[in-house]
Design a protein around this nucleic acid. Sequence first.
RNA 1: CGGGGCAUAGCUCAGCCUGGCUAGAGCGCUUGCUUUGGGAGCAAGAGGUCGUGAGUUCGAAUCUCACUGCCCCGACCA
Length: 508
Amino acid sequence: MAKTDSSRITPRNADYSKWYLDVIREAQLADYSAVRGCMVIRPNGYAIWEKLQRELDDRFKDTGHRNAYFPLFIPVSFLSKEAQHVEGFAKECAIVTHHRLRAKADKSGVEVDPASALEEPLVVRPTSETIIWSAYKTWIQSYRDLPILINQWANIVRWEMRTRLFLRTAEFLWQEGHTAHATEKEAIEETHRMLDVYRDVAENVMATPVICGAKTPGERFAGAVESFSIEAMMQDRKALQAGTSHYLGQNFAKAFDVKFLNAEGKTELVYATSWGVSTRLIGALIMTHSDDTGLILPPKLAPLHAVIVPIYKNDDEKAKVYGECERVIAELKTQDLAVHWDNREGISPGAKYFDWEVRGVPLRIEVGPRDVDGGNLVLVRRFQVEGADPKAKKEILPRAQALARVKSLLEEMQRQLLERAIAFRATHTRVINSIEEYERFFKEEGGGFAWVHWAGTHNDEEEMAKRYQTSIRNIPFPGQGPAGSDDQGKCILTGKPSARRVVMAEAY
RNA sequence: CGGGGCAUAGCUCAGCCUGGCUAGAGCGCUUGCUUUGGGAGCAAGAGGUCGUGAGUUCGAAUCUCACUGCCCCGACCA
């Protein structure tokens, strides 16, 4: 009966970051690798990424974008063309300086061949604006060449000092959209359009509610005129930036001299955007929905919708039960569901239940002799909503009804996860009007999202970060906050008049 | 880069202080039998350059020194 060491998950309220790592390990989503700060994404984790990619990619295509691929290596000189951009990334770049190894003199291995130094070092891309704009320069001559709407799926490297699986690793997978437009208006529209695509995927696919808004100048992307983000609340009440969309103005067009002739025959600089989400979204998923038993996945992103666990005592029962399992699988597959039949032998049904629960499979179907005899199936959902009858987690239904119920049950769970996350965020969201209340909220009451009026400077922001470990997550677009959050007021720190509230929180 | 800690089986760790027989435990893994409606039991078995190098010693996982790697805290984090 004792839980085995390897399956133990630290409860969230005991140690949240340990819980997070335990879930990743037990659900076999990722491993640390031999390379510092890098992770191995295991099949269970990669399958989630593939589903996310599909959802995002379909939407990118629907909004007129096409995929392309640009080099991993960027000449150092490219990075230095845009002043803000270099400054932002200089401190976290991996640099290729040589192109050859040679055997050591004592034959004990290999070493860098000093004679192979590159004339110009190459940076492993931390983002691709510069290499892409050097290509766009050759593609764009006329307004007829615009817009260019391109997305790239790629890996990038940012040499982070401190790493956490999925949330911040030295290498990660992402997509980066890079668009070029003839007018500022069109580019700004694109920036907002793509932020809304991210919001749609976050809420309707990931079941993770987000707040859309503008970043403050201090948090802006290096080289952007304006940055926008979607911000989600994790179960420890910290904010996680889940996606960003940037209006780059003409900054990169200037840096790479990308001009076009407009309809009036005049030369103009091109307007740009870039936008991205990464494997960090998997971290967001974990921290939004999962519980002390393990991973919980919204059905739309679950690589497996249902697992079938057979129960039997002897060969007769086994034959009977297996026959039924095969029929159930066949019928569920006609419904386009991803179903797995756990027919491993020598493992108790209970052990299998735990196994699949920790991996976050939304639905379990139990098939035992009693069920076959009675013409029933047992459906067990991965999670129960708060306040619901605990018995309702398990539904015993006549076979045909059960099979017809699967899809609607998955849809119900998808909806409930979003509702649950919205309710959690609402509980830990506060409209705050004084610094005293702010201090109480973060130092005594556990914190969350604080909607406060702000008119401070960048230095004031740093002061708030020092005092409370909080930062301005974004300046939300109107209509997303609790009652009264769109009213005018006074800055909680400086008392200066403020037209709009910002969201402050601790952040990842 | 500063402060602290750790390095022994796939994982978590004991053994080190006070040197001494064949280096251990739990979990995991393999095989067989018995089991199976919420993490099964028994039996047998595989698995180790004790991070690396040097030193002290009759003898080093254990003591000394150097090196390397990792973790935690801080700094850093478009």
